[in-house]
């Protein structure tokens, strides 16, 4: 029997009648057309489907839309709005571009949603902490090195003031 779910996605209220077995990732992709969230393995291992649910990173292929009724979800499409830089990107998106943190790009939405969740709770992570955190995200192209660099670069950019004004010099 279909059930009604109401989920806030990227700040906007959404709702639909779904089958109870509908996964959150399918709700996002098929009901809302938000195809930035990818299904990589569909077995809770690869992390391509990571989104934020009420501020915490989760694998959207392993949550029912029904379980997320009433939750606030942020996907890769809505991430930049939470912390936009001058170009309208999230600093971690900009850092992935600048550091060449991707090759084929399939894992990238999950990597960015995972990395940005780390930066929400740790503003200055070490390389080890970043690698440890990214244990649930698999990339088969990059060798991870540039992904770690990107997270570090974004952390650094986010710690700096957004709009640094020229320092007044003493007369």
């Amino acid at each position: 029997m279909p059930i009604k779910v109401e989920i806030t996605v990227n700040g906007a209220p959404t709702s639909a009648e779904v089958e109870p077995r509908t996964l959150l990732v399918h709700y996002l992709r098929e009901y809302l057309g938000l195809t930035g969230t990818h299904v990589g393995c569909d077995t809770t291992q690869c992390g391509a489907c990571v989104v934020h649910a009420d501020g915490r990173s989760i694998k959207s292929c392993t949550a029912l839309a029904a379980q997320m009724n009433g939750a606030k979800i942020t996907t890769i499409e809505g991430l930049a709005a939470t912390h936009p830089d001058a170009e309208g990107l999230h600093p971690l998106q900009a850092a992935f571009r600048d550091c060449h943190g991707l090759q084929c790009g399939f894992c990238t939405p999950g990597m960015i949603m995972s990395g940005s969740a780390l930066l929400l709770e740790n503003a200055d992570p070490t390389d080890h902490e970043i690698r440890d955190w990214l244990e649930g995200n698999i990339c088969r192209c990059t060798g991870y090195h540039n992904i770690v660099r990107a997270v570090k670069a974004a952390a650094s950019a986010m710690r700096e003031p957004k709009d640094p004004r020229p320092q007044e010099t003493a007369a």
Binding site: V50, R56, I58, A117, G136
Partner: peptide, 9 residues
């Protein structure tokens, strides 16, 4: 246990 996303659920 698992990874951060699994620990969150």
């Amino acid at each position: 246990i698992g990874d951060p996303h699994v620990r969150n659920r």
